[in-house]
Amino acid sequence: MLTGLFAGLFYLATAVLLGGLAYRIRLYWKTPAPLKIPTTPAPTTEAGAALRLAREVVLFESLFKANKWIWLFGWVFHFALLLVLIRHLRYFVNPVPELLVMAQQFGIYAGFAMVAGLAGLWARRILVPRIRYISAPSDHLMLALLVGIGLSGLTMKFIDHTDIVAVKAFFIGLMTFKWQPLPADPVLLVHLTLVAALMIIFPFSKLLHGVGLFFSPTRNQADNPREKRHLAPWAAKLEAGGGSK
């Protein structure tokens, strides 16, 4: 019963996440950027623009220029999250590759860093009047959700252990359609429920920022408008239609 419920939940969540993301990516891909609008000074080559994007993704370069506190908390949160997720891969691959085993020890304390980063961001959202002003309930809920996931995970890791071999069996079973029972530990169930919620919300929320960044014309365009003519399909049609003399 419980196993079936969670199996269904995760199939649904995965479908929504992947389907939703594919839809959004397709939408961004198909929507043209009719004008050259990189925020200058900008790299003059495509390779340079790719490097600029990479710096934004890895270092949060613009954010660093803008505000050191948000940068610190945000960067710690995201990179801890990355480590945590890498660590979690062990539930989904069998056998666990050498590299992933090595990554485990780095991941252990990342859970704390992730929650600490989130706490810092949340504190700013509550304490700084400007940021409080721009926050909608969903912005707080998103943080609550992630903190909830982090805390429940840490609880399992350090206080109320669960049978992670069984958890792995359950998820491998989901992927191979040979269902295995899920341990009925309450903390685990909370953790998994929140994770499923996160997956479902992802493609409908501001969490799209991770995808959006790659499509942001002010960051991904090369600064070469005089050298290379840039024309969107709809603008070409306008031109062909002879909108003007």
Partner: peptide, 17 residues
């Protein structure tokens, strides 16, 4: 017609920067 508009209206995380 404008990728900028579509992406920017979706992507803001209200970080406050």
């Amino acid at each position: 017609k404008y990728r900028s508009l579509q992406v920017y209206l979706d992507s803001c995380v209200k970080c406050g920067a």
